[in-house]
Design a protein around this nucleic acid. Structure first.
Lengths: 161, 161
DNA sequence: GGCGGCGGTGATACACTGTAACACTCGCGC
DNA sequence: GCGCGAGTGTTACAGTGTATCACCGCCGCC
């Protein structure tokens, strides 16, 4: 479902994700609480972007309900630490597949067939964007780039049928 | 508030916008109804991105209320015709400042100080994106690129103070 | 003229997404 | 013990978007 090409780091699965998060929090003197851990686990376990309410439902068991607001707080924390990203066009969240260089731009490739989200970064694209912004006299603070289409696997599957 | 550089067409103000919309609808055999006209006018008149509920409120007068759902339908139509764009990161809508080449990509520069939105297109950026997508084996259908930051005017204003 | 279809609109209700405010607990330092 | 701050639970609410049905006006057709 995912393609990760040309990355420096590609932790990929949920276990690595949790280990990485834990060491990162320890390093920064922050709390990696059970709730935050659970939320990250749900986000990391599914290959698709998860809505906050989906996560809340997933974490709820009969007798122990997790409110969406708690999920949002955990997600805010995880986003601040760069462990998850928000997909604006879907109102959904995905685990961060990279270890990012500071200020590095990211592109999200969202497959409209399988729902999988791939995360790419491109120096080429980045410099093109920089030139365009400079030409427009605009000082960027934060940018989002999301492309919807068909991933390689889904395209092949379509052609085969 | 706006900067439009390197464009082929830059209608800019609301009157031109309405005239363009009307001729475009006639050309395509579509109805440019009063509601659609009013919605487009509100979107075009303000330099900032407008929420659907803002537009609904703006169009409502005592005794004659316009429901948000009607606004959404008009906006859907206007977006299909390429007359307005949706800013995903703001859940808001802006008039389309370009006459687009088919399939051409667009960048939105959103000023976090004045709230103005500028619309740029860049062949340079476009080709960089194309190369990145190809490298990832991804077939794009639709992309959104939104940059938040400070526009030239607001930056200058800040430095002056 | 009657009649049916179709696009657009009005209206209500509802689902989904996100935030504000307050109370409570727990761990920690004093 | 006591205060304090971070994290969480809970309720309520604001904001965003969609589903559904009813109605109206127009046009073509018999």
């Amino acid at each position: 479902m995912h393609r990760h090409e040309g990355h420096d780091a590609c932790p990929g699965d949920a276990v690595d994700m949790l280990a990485r998060a834990e060491s990162l929090c320890r390093e920064r003197g922050l709390q990696f609480t059970p709730l935050r851990r659970d939320v990250l686990e749900v986000v990391a376990a599914s290959g698709k972007a998860q809505g906050a309410y989906d996560i809340a439902e997933r974490l709820s068991v009969p007798g122990k309900r997790v409110a969406p607001v708690s999920v949002y707080r955990a997600l805010d924390f995880l986003m601040e630490q760069g462990l998850v990203h928000r997909i604006a066009s879907r109102n959904a969240f995905i685990p961060c597949a990279h270890v990012h260089a500071p200020g590095e731009g990211v592109i999200f490739l969202i497959c409209r067939t399988c729902g999988g989200v791939d995360e790419e970064s491109s120096q080429d694209l980045e410099s093109g964007l920089g030139r365009t912004l400079e030409r427009a006299g605009f000082t960027p603070a934060h940018s989002i780039l999301e492309v919807e289409g068909d991933c390689g696997l889904c395209r092949d599957r379509k052609q085969a049928s």
